[in-house]
Amino acid sequence: MDIKNSVVLVTGANRGIGEAFVKALSDAGASRIYATARNIDSLKEIVAISSTSIIPLELDITNLEQIAQVAELAQDVNLLINNAGVGSGGGFFKSNSVEMARWEMETNYFGSLYMIRAFAPILKQNGGGAIANILSIASVINMPMFGSYSASKAALHSLTQGVRAELAAQGTLVVGVFPGPVDTDMGKQVPLDKVPPSQIALSTLQAIEQGIEDVSPDATSQQVFASIQQDAKALEKQFATLLPQ
């Protein structure tokens, strides 16, 4: 599909990768961009990029009532970018690890599922369109310092594959994006080199235009997938060494 003149909804658009998507979409000529965040006041600077084409909407992707309201307003969407997500550091044995795991799964997996279920019929009525799910290299290899976050992203990876199969008949392209460490607030805890959010956004939009389903948008991501092909167990052991001693 062409990004130019597309109508796009971006979740978690107020900062980081979401903000980069809004900027990249505006530069590419998207005709309308629904920029969403839990706090609509946090979108003021984003709207200033192009007040004529960027529409701010309050949206918590775990709130089914808000999702229904946004879907009713945004009936012209033909590209959904599921970017909103949460993450906590630490493994599975902290005192609050179960609560954190539920929070991550409810947002990263169920929130994305809610959005896809709400917008799949809209994409169908608008010719099929596309969905981009922002995953992580943690979707395909657990990073023990972010154990439950990795589990939630692995669930989202499986969801991406499942809805890709189910939505193929209506002509909806479903894209999975697997960044390595990104220079965002969430990425500060990762002890690896980071890439700018703009690189993730631009690589994803290029993939959507080319019909590519799986995107490794940076060198770390590409190396992880290559290492999985060569020796997945060795890669697992390598990531285990990143746990604080």
Rank of each mutant, 00 (worst) to 15 (best):
M1N: 15
I3H: 05
I3W: 06
V7C: 15
T11W: 00
T11S: 00
G12C: 07
R15V: 04
I17K: 08
A20I: 05
V22I: 06
K23R: 14
L25T: 11
S26L: 14
D27P: 05
R32W: 07
Y34P: 03
T36E: 01
D41E: 06
I46S: 03
V47E: 11
A48F: 10
I54R: 03
I54L: 04
I55C: 05
I55Q: 04
L57Y: 05
E58D: 02
L59I: 01
T62H: 10
Q69N: 14
Q69E: 12
V70K: 02
L73K: 13
L73W: 08
A74I: 08
D76N: 08
V77M: 02
G85Q: 09
G85H: 09
G87E: 14
G89K: 14
F92V: 15
N96E: 11
S97Q: 12
S97I: 10
M100Y: 15
M100V: 15
R102V: 12
S112A: 10
S112R: 02
M115N: 04
I116K: 00
R117M: 11
F119L: 01
A120S: 03
L123K: 00
N126A: 10
G127A: 14
A130S: 14
A132Y: 00
A132H: 00
N133E: 04
I134H: 04
I134R: 04
S136W: 00
S136I: 02
A138D: 05
S139W: 08
V140A: 05
P144V: 06
G147Y: 10
G147W: 05
S148Y: 12
S148C: 08
Y149M: 03
S150H: 09
K153A: 08
A155P: 08
A155Y: 06
S158M: 15
S158P: 15
T160G: 12
T160W: 09
G162W: 11
A165N: 11
L167P: 07
L167T: 09
A168R: 13
A168D: 14
Q170K: 07
G171A: 10
V175Y: 01
F178M: 09
P179I: 03
D183F: 11
G187I: 12
V190Q: 06
P191N: 01
L192M: 06
D193N: 08
K194F: 09
P196D: 13
Q199E: 13
T204N: 01
L205K: 08
L205A: 06
E213Y: 07
V215T: 06
D218Q: 06
S221M: 10
Q222K: 13
F225W: 11
F225Q: 09
S227D: 13
I228C: 02
Q229L: 14
Q229I: 09
Q230I: 09
Q230L: 12
A232F: 13
L235G: 02
E236I: 11
E236D: 12
A240I: 15
T241H: 15
L242A: 05
Q245M: 13
Q245T: 12
